[in-house]
Amino acid sequence: MASDNRPETTRAEWWRADTATLHARKQELEVLKRRLDAEQNAILAEINNRGVRGCSGHSTLAAMVFEDFLVTDKEAGARADRVLALHPNVVVGGEVVPPLDRGRRGGGHDRGRSGRRDHPHPRPHPVHGS
């Protein structure tokens, strides 16, 4: 599926834009990035729930992200953690575990390439504590 989300101007033309236009466009692009990330996360969660990652030779969601998106091990683990924290997950036996509830349900902690948990416990924010 092709996308029409092309930049409005090329890099060489930004020097011509006024400051207000630059600030407006940077905000527009941030919103677009977040929407695309949210859509990709939902797709990854669905792939994970269907068990496709296991059938394709990937032992964990983090391993699939690492190999398919050519990101670092740390980035792959962070993306997988985010997907699993934000979307419901189906565990063995068919039980649906709501987002951010995995630590209380005891869903299996699958450790992948980096040793990261595939089903993270909710952790307090390092600065805010929540």
Rank of each mutant, 00 (worst) to 15 (best):
T60I: 03
G129N: 02
L29F: 10
D110F: 11
L61Y: 01
R6P: 10
G54M: 02
R34E: 14
K33L: 08
M1L: 12
E30H: 13
S59W: 08
D118N: 14
Q40Y: 09
P7I: 09
L44I: 03
H87D: 06
D18G: 00
A12F: 07
V65F: 03
K74C: 05
H23G: 05
E75M: 09
R6L: 15
E75Y: 01
A45E: 01
A80Y: 00
V83A: 04
E67R: 12
A80H: 00
H87T: 07
L36I: 12
V91L: 02
L84W: 04
V52F: 13
A62K: 00
L32I: 04
M1Q: 10
I47R: 05
H58F: 14
N49G: 08
G115R: 04
V71R: 06
L61F: 00
A38M: 06
Q40C: 13
N41Q: 15
A45V: 06
W14D: 05
V52N: 07
R16K: 11
A2I: 14
G115D: 03
I43K: 02
F66K: 12
R105P: 00
S114R: 12
F66C: 10
G115W: 01
R116A: 14
V65W: 00
I43E: 06
D81T: 09
R11A: 14
